[in-house]
Design a protein around this nucleic acid. Structure first.
Length: 814
RNA sequence: GCCGGGGUGGCGGAAUGGCAGACGCAGCGGACUUAAAAUCCGUGGCCGCAAGGCGUGAGGGUUCGAGUCCCUCCCCCGGUACCA
């Protein structure tokens, strides 16, 4: 047997053994142990596990291993989020079948994940592009459709004129198509949506879940709840009757100052309002807006532009006519796509009014504002209403509510809550995704595919010419089906689902991955749900992490799960950077390939190094030279365990070793609970150094030594699983270190009899003193005042005050 | 602009209001070696021979005591942005 630490040999050896013995299998419905569901976000099978995968996965693996040692029945699964664009791009560019490309990547990545020494239960692997998985994604679609949570509507989509196709948001980079670099336009298309807004109010509540403040704030902002009112402004309709422009406003109290209205250029009433004299100008403006890139439209720097439609609406509070304009600073996607403009009290409206010479009428007073003169700026806060009809003379405080009451009484409008959150557009005109299980019948209209006909399987041998329609449209044999209801000829829906739909319920499938009759059984749900610890990147804050909550709540309302939230605790790791502090990228040449690091130093060393860098939620530069320290430490541990010390039978030594050991157990346990890997490793280093020192000072007590070595290997096992296992075996212990119990902290072993305290005079340390741990303040004060250093720095003054912090310090104030 | 998170040695970082810089990297000195690598020991904020003084982005404050709490400001990173 080789006596040197050779990671290449031992890592391969133990990975095989762990697999053979199936020690990481989650045991279904074991009621003798508490369950623990640890989940880390599954990867897209890009083909290579890089450092960006190690950083989230190695620590979460350590956390799962720790829970097992604590006696939990741990579910720690892994899978692949394998639908998506890159596979289809490979098909378009290089003629490779997306299926082949995806599955060969998965094979490669599975091997790399195994090489990390991860303890995933591979028997529960889910692959979202497997028909056995997407069958249930389609099933969810049908359930949501049944509950009225899936619907079809016309919406703006990103359109690339060069590729002649619709693009996903992630395909639009800085307003341009990532492939052809053409400027993206908006096009109105009929698309499928999930009604996430139904849950807007509940998604704002985070009761009982331990999620980072940052994520909660981002989701809250994204949902964007605001209270206000809908107000209806009558306009003459084309046929001579009356229609209304409805606006959303948070300041219905300022309606008396609404001197004009602005519609988004895409607003449906624009055409009817536009007078012949203004038509050419209005149409030109709409054309320009349609061509404007997203960046241009969203820039707040840009000067506002707009055009008068020639039409007028009636202010329902004053009865006065107000001119109606269109401008692209009003977004068709927010509120009602129309605003009442109150230039005196809104900065944007003020800027617009000033540019186009529109009236500015202040409707409340404010300190320091002379509202009789021309305003220099809009102001939002004030004292008392003026020029405001019924509100005149009443305080601005409470005015919003009174205005709503007036509106509701007169029928001019009503109070409402508006959300920024929009329904989730899930249609994709792409091949490599889960087909939407719907059929279009000329007789029956839209008909869901019956559950027992799922999955709707993706056809093979498809051509990927970009035509602007889903490649599925071209597969006649697949598209043409009899209507499930009336059997007359019908056509399948050819759009596929956004890949975020797959990842919105994958955590449920892990509980029961091979279930052929349901997405999961009630029994599995009752036992495993919810996820106890979910780890992954914060970049998913308002996408995946919002969708997964929406799905869960919908599932709860269908009676499929019991809890209100899918994940009890969420932890976001930071971003690992290249050694130069920049994001790792091939073009920068700062990519650190983990495989090379493993070849050179071993997986244990890389795992530890990644955890040692700094706080997990901070990320930071990966510094390969720092690896030296970890490798040295692992080698020191190796010799500490494999080289026999000189033994004695000595109670002093035993007590000393136990004190060191249990100090370490205490610190390490606290750190691992809080996922503080960097300080945890520092504690382990201190631990090994301390017992090595005790050994080098002479002989060590045999029992104390054995206890120390055992504790060290147990404490290391979650972080460096291979070396811990090897040394566990070499020191004559039975397989496996990973099925042992986490060491228990015994407080009595770390009790100190005496303690060294710092002696301060006027807040500065001037001496130190050994005192009994339970010494009284009076006793310590007497001792301290007798110290020559203390009298020296008191310089003859008598102590005015003494602060004593037991076990730490004493401060003499003179 | 707004919302989050930061700013501590040459570097990564540590520190329930209580001894700033744990642990590690790099450096320096030494041991071993023909030599180098590896390993081990020592050293390790700055100024100073020393006593001592000064030090956690800047300035103020609270406190016996502030990296930590409060106020004002500067800088960096992430997110978001005409949301009516």
């Amino acid at each position: 047997m080789n006596d040197r630490y050779d990671p290449a040999v031992i890592e391969e050896k133990w990975q095989k053994r762990w697999e053979d013995e199936q020690i990481y299998r989650a045991v279904d419905f074991d009621e003798s142990r508490p369950k623990w569901y640890a989940l880390t976000m599954f990867p897209y099978p890009s083909g290579d596990i890089h450092t960006g995968h190690w950083y989230p996965m190695a620590p979460s693996d350590a956390a799962a291993r720790y829970r097992r040692m604590q006696g939990y029945n741990v579910l720690f699964p892994m899978g692949f989020d394998s639908f998506g664009l890159p596979a289809e791009n490979a098909a378009i560019k290089r003629g490779i079948d997306p299926r082949e490309w995806t599955y060969s990547n998965i094979d490669r990545m599975r091997g790399q994940l195994r090489r990390m020494g991860t303890s995933f239960d591979w028997s529960r692997e889910v692959i979202t592009s497997d028909p056995e998985f997407y069958r249930w994604t389609q099933w969810w679609f049908l359930k949501l459709y049944e509950k009225g949570l899936a619907y079809r509507a016309e919406a703006a989509a990103n359109w690339c004129p060069g590729c002649n196709t619709v693009l996903a948001n992630e395909q639009v980079v800085d307003g341009k198509c990532e492939r052809s670099d053409d400027v993206v336009e908006r096009r109105f298309l009929t698309q499928w949506f999930f009604r996430i807004t139904e849950y807007a109010e509940e998604l704002l509540r985070f009761d009982g879940i331990d999620w980072p403040e940052r994520i909660k704030v981002m989701q809250t902002n994204w949902i964007g709840r605001s209270e206000g009112a809908l107000l209806h402004f009558p306009v003459p309709s084309e046929g001579g009757g009356e229609e209304t422009i409805t606006v959303f406003t948070t300041r219905p109290d300022t309606v008396y100052g609404a001197t004009f209205m602005v519609l988004a250029p895409e607003h449906p009433l624009v055409a009817g309002l536009t007078t012949d004299a203004q038509r050419a100008e209005v149409e030109a403006y709409i054309g320009r807006t349609a061509k404007a890139t997203e960046i241009e439209r969203l820039s707040t720097e840009r000067e506002k532009t707009g055009v008068f439609t020639g039409g007028y609406a009636t202010n329902p509070f004053t009865g006065e006519p107000v001119p109606v304009w269109i401008a692209d600073y009003v977004l068709v996607t927010y509120g009602t796509g129309a605003i009442m403009a109150v230039p005196a009290h809104d900065e944007r409206d003020f800027e617009f009014a000033r540019k186009y010479g529109l009236a500015v009428t202040p409707v409340f007073t404010a300190p320091g504002v002379d509202h009789e003169r021309e305003l220099e700026a809009a102001y939002t806060a004030g004292d008392v209403y003026i020029h405001s009809g019924e509100l005149d003379g009443t305080p601005v405080d409470g005015g919003v509510q009174r205005a709503i009451e007036i509106a509701e009484r007169t029928g001019a409008g009503e109070g409402t809550v508006n959300y920024r959150l929009r329904d989730w557009l899930i249609s994709r005109q792409r091949y490599w995704g889960a087909p939407i299980p719907m059929v279009h019948c000329s007789e029956c209209g839209i008909v869901p595919v019956p559950e027992d006909q799922l999955p709707v399987v993706l056809p093979e041998h498809v051509t990927f010419e970009p035509t602007g329609r889903s490649p599925l449209t071209e597969v006649e044999s697949w598209v043409n089906v009899p209507c499930p209801q009336c059997e007359s000829p019908a056509r399948r829906e050819t759009d596929t689902m956004d890949t975020f739909v797959c990842s919105s319920w994958y955590e449920m499938r892990y509980a029961d991955p091979n279930n052929a009759i349901a997405p999961f059984s009630k029994e599995a749900a009752d036992y495993w749900f919810p996820v106890d610890l979910y780890t992954g990147g914060a970049e998913h804050a308002v996408m995946h992490l919002l969708y997964v909550r929406f799905f869960w709540k919908a599932a709860r309302d269908m009676g499929l799960v019991d809890q209100d939230e899918p994940m009890t605790r969420l932890f976001n790791q930071g971003v690992i950077l290249g050694p130069d502090g920049n994001r790792m990228s091939k073009s920068r040449g700062n990519v650190v390939a983990p495989d090379e690091q493993v070849d050179r130093w071993g997986a244990d060393a890389l795992r530890c190094q990644i955890m040692f860098i700094g706080p997990w939620d901070q990320g930071g530069p990966y510094n390969p030279t720092g690896m030296q320290g970890i490798v040295r430490w692992l080698n020191r541990v190796w010799s500490l365990v494999t080289e026999e010390p000189r033994y004695s039978d000595d109670e002093m030594s035993r007590a000393e070793l136990r004190k060191t050991t249990h100090t370490a157990i205490h610190a390490v346990t606290g750190d691992i609970e809080a996922l503080r890997w960097n300080t945890l490793i520092a504690r382990l280093m201190e631990f090994s150094t301390a017992i090595a020192k005790q050994r080098d000072e002479g002989a060590v007590d045999r029992m104390g030594w054995e206890e120390s070595i055992e504790a060290m290997l147990l404490l290391m096992a979650p972080l460096a699983p291979h070396i811990a296992e090897e040394l566990w075996e070499r020191s004559g212990r039975p397989f496996s270190v990973h099925t042992q119990s986490w060491p228990e902290f015994v407080e009595a072993y770390v009790q100190e009899e005496g303690v060294e305290i710092a002696v301060q005079v006027n807040g500065k340390v001037r001496d130190r003193l050994f005192v009994a741990a339970d010494a009284s303040e009076a006793a310590v004060t007497d001792q301290v005042l007798a110290l020559s250093r203390v009298s020296e720095f008191l310089g003859g003054r008598s102590p005015k005050k003494v602060i004593y912090v037991a076990g730490k310090l004493i401060n003499i104030v003179g």
